[in-house]
């Protein structure tokens, strides 16, 4: 039962998606499959056939970073960086479901992504800032 993670990393050679545990705990392998956040290490590849897949490589558009990536840079949300692709995916997913999250909602949205470096504070800040940026962008485009 090939794992979606192996298909992504080996067949598609998209190595931005990481394997931290292979047991569904760490979230380093998070991707968005048919609009839903999943741990690609737990998804049998057959179940992803024909599905729409978004990995970290598809978050920035060309040279333009996604607002979540931008704020991870500015707030210090990435340290060693190994959890970062998964964190970014979880944050992108959260902000889609819940564009104005409070701190508790952010923590809940990221609870499946373990980070050993940051203690989560700066990641929470990053997501909050990304939400703010999105609001600003929306307001600017309206006015």
């Amino acid at each position: 039962m090939a794992r979606l993670l192996d298909v992504i990393r080996e067949d598609l050679e998209l190595t931005g998606t990481k394997e931290g545990c292979g047991e569904g705990e760490c979230g380093a392998c998070s991707v968005i499959l048919n609009g839903k956040l999943v741990n690609s290490c737990l998804v049998p590849a057959v179940q992803a056939e024909g599905a729409e897949l978004r990995t970290i490589e598809g978050v920035a558009s060309d040279e333009q970073l996604h607002s979540v990536q931008e704020s991870f840079l500015h707030c210090g949300g990435a340290q060693c960086g190994i959890c970062t692709p998964g964190m970014v995916m979880a944050a992108v997913d959260l902000l889609k479901r819940c564009p104005h999250p409070d701190e508790a909602q952010i923590r809940d949205g990221l609870a499946g992504n373990l980070c050993r470096c940051t203690g989560y504070g700066k990641i929470v800040d990053s997501v909050a800032q990304a939400a703010e940026r999105a609001i600003q962008v929306a307001e600017e485009s309206r006015s």
Binding site: N39, L42, N113
Partner: peptide, 9 residues
């Protein structure tokens, strides 16, 4: 149960 990614699957 788990967290979001588990809850989706």
């Amino acid at each position: 149960t788990g967290a979001m990614a588990i809850q989706n699957r």
